[in-house]
Simulated assay, not measured.
Amino acid sequence: MQIKYSLGHAIPELVIDAFDLRQQVFTHEQGFPADIDVDEYDNSALHVVLYLNEHPVAVLRCLLFKDTGLVKVGRVAVQKRHRGKGLGRELMKFVEQYAQQHHFKTIGLSAQHTAIEFYRTLGYQTVGEMYDEDGMDHIYMTLAIEQ
């Protein structure tokens, strides 16, 4: 297992792997429109991809807000055949370490209703009420980063 990351499009091959994985999960599997997956935030986002035997199998992206100390995690996806193996947990641990090393204060994310318990096991707390995002129930969750 290897985790690689790229800030913006610094490593084009990694970003292509990230976009391909996101399309597999969000567009083909979950039915979200392809045109909402890639957006203007991808140009400056931190793209994180987990590889098994040099094959990309899990991904997420982070928007980094230094001024407020927030890392906003999104686009978390694990290939269906690799779910339940702790790969999503490894990606989230990586983000926590990255946030701590770069002196961020909080990690926030918009969790699909089916993933709330997963994030709770990692220490995330729900904030506010459930809301609809692109036709699916989500809730905002945060994790305070210890320095």
Rank of each mutant, 00 (worst) to 15 (best):
V95A: 06
V73K: 05
M141F: 10
P33I: 12
A115T: 06
E90R: 14
T126L: 05
F26N: 10
A99C: 03
Q23H: 14
F118D: 03
N53Y: 09
A111V: 03
M136A: 14
G135R: 10
I3H: 06
A77C: 08
A45W: 00
G69A: 03
S6D: 04
K66R: 11
Q101S: 05
Y5Q: 13
R83P: 02
G86H: 06
F65A: 08
D132K: 07
A77M: 11
G108N: 02
A111S: 14
F104S: 00
F26W: 12
H9S: 08
V73I: 15
T142I: 13
K72R: 12
L14Y: 12
L91K: 04
Y131I: 08
A58K: 11
M130V: 15
R89M: 12
F118V: 03
L52T: 12
Y124A: 01
G135A: 10
V95H: 01
D39G: 01
T106I: 08
A111H: 07
F26E: 10
V15E: 07
H82M: 14
N53H: 13
M1Y: 11
L7M: 12
R61N: 00
F118W: 04
D137I: 07
V59D: 01
L143V: 05
G86I: 09
Y98W: 14
H55V: 13
D35R: 02
D132N: 15
H138F: 04
L7I: 15
K4W: 03
V38E: 06
Q125R: 11
G31F: 09
F32Y: 15
Q97G: 10
H102S: 02
F118K: 06
H82F: 15
V49T: 13
Q97H: 09
L52S: 07
C62W: 03
P33N: 06
H9L: 14
Y140H: 12
Q23F: 13
E146W: 02
K72E: 00
R75K: 14
M1W: 11
N43A: 09
E133L: 10
L52Q: 15
V95I: 14
H102I: 03
Y124G: 01
S110K: 04
Y124Q: 02
I36E: 09
Y124N: 02
Q125T: 10
A58D: 10
R120S: 04
G74Y: 01
H9N: 15
M1E: 12
I107G: 05
H102L: 01
L109S: 04
G108H: 03
L21E: 08
K66Y: 08
Y124V: 05
G8E: 02
